[in-house]
């Protein structure tokens, strides 16, 4: 049987190769502790990737995911710091991401702004609004009495760090949602062909809105994990390169930016490769600018090979498909 060479398989093969290579070369690489550390290091990235993947499969992109994560959680922590009961603060933070998701979704689905710009603008708005109106500091410290919430970032179950468990749970949920539920299939439907989906009678627009709400909720969850792990939330990550890393893990695994293709597995494969790379290179004490170059070159190789193996055709290429 001939195995078609898809981007996912290429990336998976790369990840396995690298893993094997590091295991041979680096003495302490292949220990249970290090493998857990490896996955632990990219679990938040993986969770954000899942949220992004849901949007990308529906032919969108969510550039506001990092801003959503940083501001909603920072606001929650800030309220808790100032004595608002933790439950209320969490609900308000959750409400914030839902509201922002609704606005973004409305802009994309009903105003018909291209997602790239709707989320770019919303990202700028969310960060700006948060910094100007909600928060007075860049870095919000975790309140001392956060209690069980701390488990999200620092707890263990049977020796496995909580973030890894949460990544697994999120993956399972996303898998079930995308594979077996009606809304999940709808997302594939309109991600593949919006006009056809609409003509077929699928309720495209409400689901488009829902996509952004989902990615907002995922961002909030990822933010809670991040914040509890380091006991603070730094809103400056919005200006950093995290958003590019999130897109990286999504597309690296082969979720097509033109929509309708890929799934949870692809995100996990992409996350795994990044995890192996980062961990191995950190052990080898490679400077992180060099790590960035290596990371990018691997992505480049993956998409070049993909393009050579599955070339795009001028006749079928979609207009405005960048």
């Amino acid at each position: 049987m001939k195995i078609a060479l898809t981007q996912e398989r290429i990336v998976f093969a790369l990840a396995v190769l690298l893993f094997a290579g590091f295991a041979i070369v680096l003495p302490n690489f292949l220990t249970a502790g290090n493998v857990l550390t490896l996955i632990r290091g990219v679990s938040v990235l993986g969770i954000l990737g899942l949220g992004m993947a849901v949007v990308v499969i529906g032919r969108g992109i969510d550039l506001s995911i990092v801003a959503n994560m940083a501001i909603s959680v920072a606001w929650t922590l800030d309220m808790a710091d100032r004595g608002v009961p933790l439950g209320v603060a969490l609900s308000l933070g959750f409400g914030f991401v839902v509201l922002m998701g609704l606005i973004t979704g409305f802009l994309v689905a009903y105003v018909e702004i291209p997602p790239l710009f709707a989320t770019l603008a919303m990202g700028a708005f969310i960060y700006g609004f948060g910094r100007a109106a909600l928060l007075s500091q860049d870095v919000i410290q975790m309140p001392a009495h956060a209690g069980i919430l701390n488990l999200a970032g620092t707890g263990h179950v049977l020796g496995v760090p909580m973030p890894i468990i949460l990544l697994a749970v999120a993956s399972l949920l996303a898998f079930l949602f995308l594979r077996y539920t009606r809304p999940g299939r709808t997302i594939y439907g309109f991600g593949d062909n919006l006009q056809a989906a609409r003509i077929t009678g699928l309720s495209v627009r409400p689901m488009q809105v829902a996509q952004y709400v989902i990615s907002g909720i995922v961002a909030f969850a990822a933010g809670i994990i991040t914040a509890t792990a380091v006991e603070s939330m730094n809103t400056r990550i919005v200006n950093g390169t995290l958003i590019y890393d999130v897109i990286l893990v999504v597309v690296l695994g082969g979720v097509g930016l033109s929509g309708g293709k890929g799934g949870v597995r692809n995100v996990l494969v992409g996350t795994l490769l990044i995890g192996v790379l980062l961990n191995g290179m950190t052990i080898m004490d490679v400077q992180y600018t060099v790590q960035n170059v290596v990371k990018s070159l691997i992505l480049l190789v993956a998409i070049v090979v993909d393009s050579l193996v599955n070339p795009r055709d001028e006749q079928t290429a979609q207009q405005g498909d960048i």
Partner: peptide, 15 residues
């Protein structure tokens, strides 16, 4: 203006 105000205004105007 406070940090972030510029970003917010730019976001609104872009939308």
């Amino acid at each position: 203006m406070q940090s972030g105000a510029g970003s917010m205004i730019l976001g609104i105007i872009l939308i």
